[in-house]
Amino acid sequence: MGTATGIIRALNSGIKHMAIKRFTLRYPEEKLKFVGDGYQFDPSTGVGIAGLKGRHMLFHDHCTGCQLCSIACEGVAEAIAMVKVPEEQKQNKKSIMPQIDYGKCVFCGLCVDACPFYALYMTNDYELSSFSKEGLIYTPAQLAVKPYVAQDSEIQITARGATHG
């Protein structure tokens, strides 16, 4: 193949792309849809359930304050601290529950694997930015809130190229 034909072929291949659909996602107007409600773990079988490893969710009625999640995180990021829960909130025997510092967390989900009481799961919420470091520390009360997620965009493959529809 000659040099000229090669260059024309390369240009032609690029020009074809003007006719195909836009692939990029218009975040934050559009958001990607994930499978399931976030990463969960079933201690009875020892296998997780697929889902996004996002912000955690703590179920106060299940948490016994056993600290296993905090111990699991010690070797990873030391993001979990066990803190006293205020009197007016739901209590467990030890009155302690995990508080997670998202400035340190690497979203590995090993704490979820460690919790034997179905108390700690992960959710689809990944928008955790804050103007201060303290804003990244989520107390047990904040962790109990189910996040509001409006995610509906998925990759669609059509004859005219792929797009986030």
């Binding site: 994930f34 499978v35 697929a50 889902g51 996004l52 490893k53 979203f107 590995c108």
Partner: peptide, 11 residues
């Protein structure tokens, strides 16, 4: 991301 729940560091 569908498989492991993370986009880059999957663990």
């Amino acid at each position: 991301e569908k498989m492991s729940g993370a986009r880059v560091t999957h663990a």
